[in-house]
């Protein structure tokens, strides 16, 4: 009963977040410089006549006052209509849907790699000798502070240009997925690992850990069976951060490795001022974010029985 109420509240909040995302990005796009009509017809180099531009504006409702455009947009949104891309002349939902598969593949593999790397490093290095800990946290610091495109370039130069193990770009097969996956995963893994290690070190000081050791359990067992589960709660809490990192990183990674995908789509849509498409991608990202947080809320109860009964 209380559980349902909690989820309902979160759901309502999620709808609020979506509305906020739609409104903010709508405002941002209309405030920034550039003429959508001009961009729609031909891009920056062309020089269409005023008559053509006026017609384009009338077609897309760009000649109406801003608040009318906004209300119209929200109204269509409520009916599930994301509009039509100015550039590609296809419904926004279709445009995103076509690219979605590739990005989901990349994001999921990166999330998996990030979590495995983070858990592995944290479990192995928490409460070890000082030099092991400083080596690990030093590496993590470098990885988190590296810009994603620099990290991607380094990986490209070493493993693709020099070693020739993986293709430089494209979407063909699992081999092409490896470098983008690591480019996307490493910074996230580094942050997660730092948080997880701090958490683990705190948990390993708890009396119940001493109890487990006093039963004759080996160190690995204590870490994996007792401490890790407590520390994972923190990682679940951070899944919002992970989603943000994956979505933001996907734009850069897909561009760098010339991969098809939602990130690439977002970039081209932004540079060509394809307003419906940009808004569509933003809303899509926000929706993913909201859904993941909702799932996390439910998962909490499964990991930590105290959340449900407390």
């Amino acid at each position: 009963m209380r559980q349902l109420k909690r989820i309902a509240t979160r759901f309502a909040a999620g709808v609020g977040v979506l509305w906020g995302a739609a409104t903010l990005s709508f405002a941002a796009l209309h405030v920034t410089a550039g003429d959508a009509a001009l961009a729609t017809v031909a891009g920056d180099g062309a020089n269409p006549t005023q008559a053509v531009l006026d017609r384009v504006r009338a077609d897309y409702g760009l000649d109406q006052p801003l608040w009318q455009q906004y209300l119209g947009y929200l109204g269509r949104l409520l009916q599930g209509d994301l509009g039509e891309s100015y550039q590609q002349r296809v419904p926004v939902a279709t445009a995103i849907g076509e690219q979605l598969g590739e990005t989901v593949q990349l994001a999921l593999s990166a999330a998996l790699v990030a979590v495995v790397l983070a858990v592995g490093t944290a479990v192995l290095t928490a409460r070890r000798r000082p030099w092991i800990r400083s080596a690990a946290s030093g590496t993590e610091l470098v990885l988190t502070s590296f810009p994603t495109f620099v990290l991607g370039l380094v990986l490209l130069i070493v493993f693709s240009f020099q070693a020739g193990w993986f293709p430089v770009s494209g979407n063909d097969g699992p081999a092409a997925l490896v470098l983008p996956t690591f480019t996307l995963a490493l910074p996230i893994a580094a942050t997660l690992s730092q948080v997880l290690r701090t958490e683990l070190e705190e948990v390993l000081e708890q009396p119940f850990i001493l109890t487990a050791r006093s039963r004759g359990m080996r160190d690995a067992g204590v870490r994996l069976r007792h401490a890790l589960r407590h520390a994972l709660i923190q990682i679940v809490t951070m899944s919002g951060f992970v989603i943000g990192g994956l979505l933001g990183g996907a734009v850069i990674t897909e561009t760098l490795f010339v991969r098809r995908g939602v990130g690439q789509l977002m970039l081209t849509a932004t540079t060509s001022k394809d307003i419906p498409l940009v808004l569509g991608v933003v809303l899509f990202a926000a929706a993913v974010y909201v859904v993941v947080n909702l799932v996390v809320d439910i998962v909490y109860g499964l990991i930590d029985p105290r959340v449900v009964t407390a």
Partner: peptide, 27 residues
Amino acid sequence: TERHWRGIRGAQVGFVLQDALSSLDAL
């Protein structure tokens, strides 16, 4: 060594700590 101790702990010596709320795994 740690290995020897593991054979003693729990099997030959039982250990009870203060405040079972924090001495038992809450999860």
